[in-house]
Nucleic acid binder design. Sequence first.
DNA 1: TATGTTTCCGAAAACGTTTTCGTGTTGAAA
DNA 2: TTTCAACACGAAAACGTTTTCGGAAACATA
Lengths: 348, 348
Amino acid sequence: MKKKATLKEIANELGVSISTVSKALKGSPEISFETTEKIKAFAKLLHYRPNNIALSLKNRQTKTIGVIIPEIVHHFFAEVIQGIETYANEHGYNVLIALSNESFDKEVFNIDTLASGSIDGFILSVSKGTLQCQDFHHLHETINQGMPIVLFDRQIPDISCDKVIVDDYQGSRRAVEALLESGCKEIALITTEDYVDVGFKRTQGYIEAHIKKGMPHKPSMVLKVDDQFFWEDALESLERRIEALLRLHPCIDGIFGVNEVYALTAMKVAQKMGYIIPKDIQVIGFTDGVLSKHAYPSLTSIKQHGKNMGREAAQMLIQRLESDDERPFETKVLQTELVERESTQLLG
Amino acid sequence: MKKKATLKEIANELGVSISTVSKALKGSPEISFETTEKIKAFAKLLHYRPNNIALSLKNRQTKTIGVIIPEIVHHFFAEVIQGIETYANEHGYNVLIALSNESFDKEVFNIDTLASGSIDGFILSVSKGTLQCQDFHHLHETINQGMPIVLFDRQIPDISCDKVIVDDYQGSRRAVEALLESGCKEIALITTEDYVDVGFKRTQGYIEAHIKKGMPHKPSMVLKVDDQFFWEDALESLERRIEALLRLHPCIDGIFGVNEVYALTAMKVAQKMGYIIPKDIQVIGFTDGVLSKHAYPSLTSIKQHGKNMGREAAQMLIQRLESDDERPFETKVLQTELVERESTQLLG
DNA sequence: TATGTTTCCGAAAACGTTTTCGTGTTGAAA
DNA sequence: TTTCAACACGAAAACGTTTTCGGAAACATA
């Protein structure tokens, strides 16, 4: 590896001072035309590129915000990042992304490395690993250290920072209500274990919808899937469990999946078993992503407006970065939208 | 925003020197036990976190590699990043991701900001915008500046750096040959415009397969889609064009899509028109991602081994970073694999 | 000639850290 | 008492910038 050119080298070669080089390169009127030209030409020859890191050392800010997400394949996270990027770029900030891969250790590591100089603030969605071990010391440390954090999507209590979340409860309730209103009597729920906050809330919405409509909800119609590890045959295992559920309850005429994959897999299993979608069984998923759109039949789902979420998060962070007053921390709750496609026959 | 604690502050408060604080915090035996304890306690109180940026200024390296990808929603890119991360972490490097959103300007901007201090080297897949305007000055500058680059997936000629690519030509040829061998007579191709390198190569493979098998290939069976802009009704437009193609050639009994979405959409349209997959029409897609797996019927496709690609890229980059000798630049060509699922009835 | 005003440039500090090389104090061995 | 090592700590340089301040030279004015 060649080493990089510096102001000092240019200055030495040309027999001028470092300050002169710096000013010339910035086009300062202090420096004469000839000197400026000479320096610029030589800098170009050496492929000089200023070292911003030295700069941020001086300025104590990097104009960069760090985003840490648990997973990159997730369409929802991709949308959020789009939203963050758009807003951040409009306001002169750059965005850097790092992955936690749902692991507590990697989350801590990434926060540590980024927090120490590379960025001005964080936008992050905590990993499942962190949610499980309930260890938030890294977040507290970062906040105490004076670096603002905005949490999105996955909620955690007892942490003092801005948050943007989706109204999972409402969204899920409306979806299940819509199914009930369109005539479904027996709606299965495919959800995660309760320690995943969003899974829990969506489950709550499912239950509340039944209560509100005066319908009974049977716990045996709820399938809780532990998706902690993405082992090889996770999908097959899921399919088998769904098939068992459908065999056990032939009366099922509606399925609500707490995410795209659950809903889609359920639809696939049902189709293989001979059910016609949406005639025999109607299906709704949470999180509106590529899978829903490209499925056959395409999947009715609850859209989370990931871009908005990203925008909101970026806005909250940048506001806090650029003001000195200590405003109280906010929590923004974003509403969802029911996008109807071919997997349902809803009313209205 | 609170300001961050520094060594100097700790030193002043405790009436010792900066060097003493630094050494104490690092657990140097030079410093007495009591002093060390006192300093550590106080540092904790102040939520001190060392500023790595100052360090990388000294060391002239950051142990971080930058990855720039055109899009984040793409499953293939996600896999590549997984591969990069795994290898990089194993070798003590951190990974930072930035997005170009297929835009030339953003690619340049990201390279500029990252290149100036934050990272030691790049792994990147050039944006479509860059491919179109054919302006590679930012890459040349970065390389000349002494920062190594590894290009992956999308090829560009005349640029001196390491590259990792998929054998698009072979992969595509094998897929089409497999279709022909299983009895297909009329295979439609859905591909991109030729300026997208991978699209072009996959098209070549399609043509060569026909030539090798002594089958005629009709240009009218090839649908070239311009996917440069993801405008609102891109999908509907694609569907209409595929439908038109199928109506024009009722004899079509095989479809090869140059990516997941093309193949999947084709399958969906065919199903809507009453064709049974794979009995009436067999379908294969390039790029094996989530969509293929979750489709119904699931899609036979050409797996690109994104993780391997990421590993290879990371390995090449780190090797170059850690050795001084100027090895000649390499280009690694990775083979593909045909993953058979439900959308085909291949032989053997 | 003496004074003021440009014009052009350099010295030096600052940012936060690590590290090398002192230096002063102790205690022990000669 | 002298000599030496061990110990505990500090001073200062270095990394690459920007910026403030100052100063020398050239020129114009009185």
